[in-house]
Design a protein around this nucleic acid. Structure first.
Lengths: 188, 188
DNA sequence: TCGTTGAGTCAACGGGCGTTGAGCGAATTG
DNA sequence: CAATTCGCTCAACGCCCGTTGACTCAACGA
C-alpha cells in the first residue's frame, strides 16, 4: 500500500480542511449556538484543543466556515436579473453553499451572522436596485431579495415538503411572474 | 395610597404573567438558545427557581410563550386571500405577535420551534391551496406562504432598513401583484 | 546524528447553564 | 388565634461549554 507518510505541511493542510468541513456541516445543520467545538473536533477526528489552536476562537471558526455566495454582478437588465435570481435556487450542495447555509441558519440567533446577512442582502439589494427603473427601485429590490430569502429558508432550512417535492425549474416557473412584477413597474 | 395587599391568587396570576411577558420578549429578541431562565427571572424580578416551579422546564416555558397567530379561515376567494395575507403584515406590536416572533426567531435553530413552524406554515398552505384553482395549487400556496415568510423575516427579524423605512401599505401595494400572480393562474 | 520545530494530545480551569429541594414568612382558613 | 397553605427565595447540584498551558513525539534541517 502507498504508505508514504505525507509531508508535515500537507498533513497540516488536510487536518485544517477536515476541521473546516466539519464546522461548516455542523453550523449549517444546527446553527452557531448548538454547534460545539467539541462536536466539530469529534467529527474531524481531532482534539478540541487543536481547533482552538488553528482558529483561535469559536467565533473565528464560524467566520472562516460560514462564507456566503457572492451577489450578482451589476449591469443586467430586469429580465436577466430575474433569471439570475432564479438560477441561484438550485445551489444545494457543494462547498460555498454549505457556508451560506451555515450563515443563514444562524442569522436569526447569532448577532454576527445577522450583521453579515444584512450586509450581504444589502449588497444584493443595491445591485438589483441599479437595474430597476422608477422611484421605488430600492424597495422593489428589497422585496425581490426577501422573496428569494423566504423561498430559500422554506426550502433549505425549514425543509418544507411542498417545496422539496418539486424540481427547482417548477418553482422557478411559478416564481418568475412574481419577481417580474417587482422588477418591471407597470400598470397591472 | 391604595395599599390593599392584593389577594394571594391575584398576586400569583400577575407574577406568572410577568414571567411569561419577560420570556416572550427575550425569546423574540434573541431566540431559544440564548435566552436563559436566569435572564427571564431577572427581567420579571423573580427568582429563577420560581420560573421552573411555574413552568416546569425551559422547553415548556417556550411552548407557553411562543404562540403563533391563527392561520386564515377557509372559504375565501383568491383576491380576499391575498388581502388577508397582506393584512397580516402590520401586526408588529402586541401580545400574540410577540409570541409569533419568538417562534420565528427560534425556528432555524431550535428543533421544536422548527417543527411548530412547519406545522403552522403547513396549515396555512392547506388553507390557501383550497382557494386556488389548478393542478399546482399546493405549490402556489407554498410559494405565497414563503414569500410572506421572507418579508416577515426580513422586516421583523433581520430588520432590514429598506423595508422598515416605508409604511406597511407601500409594501402591500408592491407585493400585491406578486401574490396575485401566484393566487390566480393565468397566461402571463 | 542530534537539536529543533511544530502537529497534535491531555488534563484541567472557570463559568454559566437548567434544574432541584429545603426552607421562610405572609396570606388564608377553621 | 393556632394551624395550614402556598408564593417565593436561597443555596447548591451536576453538566457541558469555550478556552488554556504543559506535554509528547514524529518530521525536519544542519
Amino acid at each position: 500500500m502507498s504508505d508514504t507518510p505525507l509531508p508535515r505541511a500537507e498533513r497540516r493542510r488536510r487536518t485544517e480542511r477536515r476541521i473546516l468541513d466539519a464546522a461548516r456541516a455542523l453550523f449549517a445543520e444546527v446553527g452557531f449556538e448548538r454547534t460545539t467545538i467539541r462536536a466539530v473536533a469529534r467529527t474531524a477526528e481531532v482534539d478540541p484543543a487543536l481547533v482552538m489552536q488553528y482558529f483561535g476562537s469559536k467565533q473565528e471558526l464560524f467566520r472562516r466556515a460560514a462564507q456566503v455566495a457572492p451577489p450578482p454582478e451589476a449591469g443586467l437588465d430586469a429580465d436577466e436579473l430575474v433569471e439570475h435570481l432564479l438560477g441561484t435556487l438550485d445551489r444545494k450542495i457543494g462547498d460555498l453553499p454549505q457556508g451560506s447555509l451555515a450563515m443563514m441558519r444562524s442569522m436569526l440567533t447569532h448577532p454576527e451572522a445577522a450583521a453579515s446577512a444584512r450586509e450581504v442582502l444589502g449588497r444584493q439589494i443595491d445591485r438589483l436596485a441599479e437595474s430597476i427603473p422608477g422611484e421605488d427601485a430600492r424597495l422593489r429590490a428589497a422585496l425581490m431579495t426577501v422573496i428569494m430569502l423566504g423561498v430559500t429558508v422554506g426550502h433549505q432550512l425549514l425543509e418544507l415538503d411542498e417545496l422539496r417535492a418539486v424540481p427547482q425549474e417548477e418553482i422557478a416557473r411559478l416564481l418568475r411572474p412574481s419577481l417580474r412584477a417587482l422588477a418591471s413597474p407597470e400598470a397591472s
